[in-house]
Design a protein around this nucleic acid. Structure first.
Length: 282
DNA sequence: GACCAGGAAGAGT
DNA sequence: ACTCTTCATGGT
């Protein structure tokens, strides 16, 4: 089994990284081995101290997916600007943002609205089972995440068994809009954060929160700061006590929070968001 | 059964 | 440009 030696001074925690809620198609077995489907790879990976043992994809793919090329300590010290984020960083030692595939990430966060993580995971799994390509690995069957044309091929009723609820027409509509994933991806990647955000929000089912998640998790726009109910709660408790409690989050409040986060944490505020989110339960 | 979950669209104003 | 309502599903 191939392995990667993590260099000293380059913190990485597989459990923090895959367990923090940024990805939906990874599962941890009791012995600590994670199994995930990324693109057309069925990856099995475990961490033994400062060594990663893996199967199912080339080493370079693993390094890139887990952002092992990023020098984490300077990045963290750039956001480590107050006691609250300091504690979150301490609690989530070795958490890294991964580089998700844009199309899968987009559909995932369309499916995420007003839902909890287990439900989102189930929807993504159903989409793959229904429309993805079969992969055999280790005597088991898995499915890739489907291309847009595969999702839309049977009309929007074909999606019903995936139990997307009111998100079904959004996934269908967006699949019809993004016919050419490669050029779509290239177009978004080329744009700076604010422009890319506007472009993504043209897609059905993609609002401010989903757009920010897609930009942060799939396009490495690290100045994106997704605001969900948890982040809003944390910011109200720890930073902005005058935020309204339970009224629906308006565009103006969302933008105020984004602006605050950028000023408080800097150009890597998206990483701060993920540390705060991951530490929310602790 | 009420309430919540990594919100967004559409109508009405 | 703001406010209000509705949306489908599963877990607690």
């Amino acid at each position: 089994m191939p392995s990667i030696a993590l260099p000293p001074g380059q913190p990485f925690s597989l459990d923090q990284t895959l367990g923090c809620g940024q990805v939906f198609r990874w599962e941890r077995s009791p012995d600590g081995t994670w199994l995930g489907i990324v693109d057309n790879h069925v990856i099995r990976i475990r961490q033994e101290g400062t060594r990663l043992r893996f199967r199912g994809a080339p080493e370079e793919f693993i390094r890139r997916y887990f952002s092992l090329d990023i020098d984490l300590l300077p990045l963290l010290s750039s956001i480590d600007n107050d006691p609250v984020i300091h504690r979150a960083i301490g609690q989530c030692n070795g958490l890294r943002l991964v580089r998700q595939l844009p199309w899968e990430c987009t559909v995932s966060y369309i499916c995420s609205t007003n839902s909890n993580i287990p439900t989102i995971r189930r929807r993504i799994g159903l989409l793959a089972e229904r429309f993805g390509t079969r992969i055999q690995s280790g005597g088991q069957t898995f499915f890739t995440f489907p291309e847009p044309s595969c999702i839309s091929c049977k009309g929007h009723e074909g999606l019903t068994i995936c139990k997307l609820g009111y998100r079904q027409p959004y996934v269908y509509g967006t699949s019809c809009t993004v016919t050419d994933v490669r050029s779509w991806e290239k177009k978004i990647r080329r744009l700076p954060y604010e422009d890319a955000r506007k472009e993504l929000m043209k897609l059905q089912g993609v609002g401010p929160k989903a757009a920010d998640c897609i930009l942060l998790f799939a396009f490495q726009k690290y100045d994106a700061f997704p605001v969900d109910v948890w982040i809003r709660r944390i910011l109200k408790e720890q930073y902005l006590p005058d935020l309204p409690t339970d009224a629906p989050l308006t565009t103006r409040e969302y933008d105020r929070i984004r602006k605050f986060a950028k000023e408080q944490f800097g150009e890597y505020c998206g990483w701060a968001q993920e540390y705060l989110y991951a530490a929310r339960i602790l």
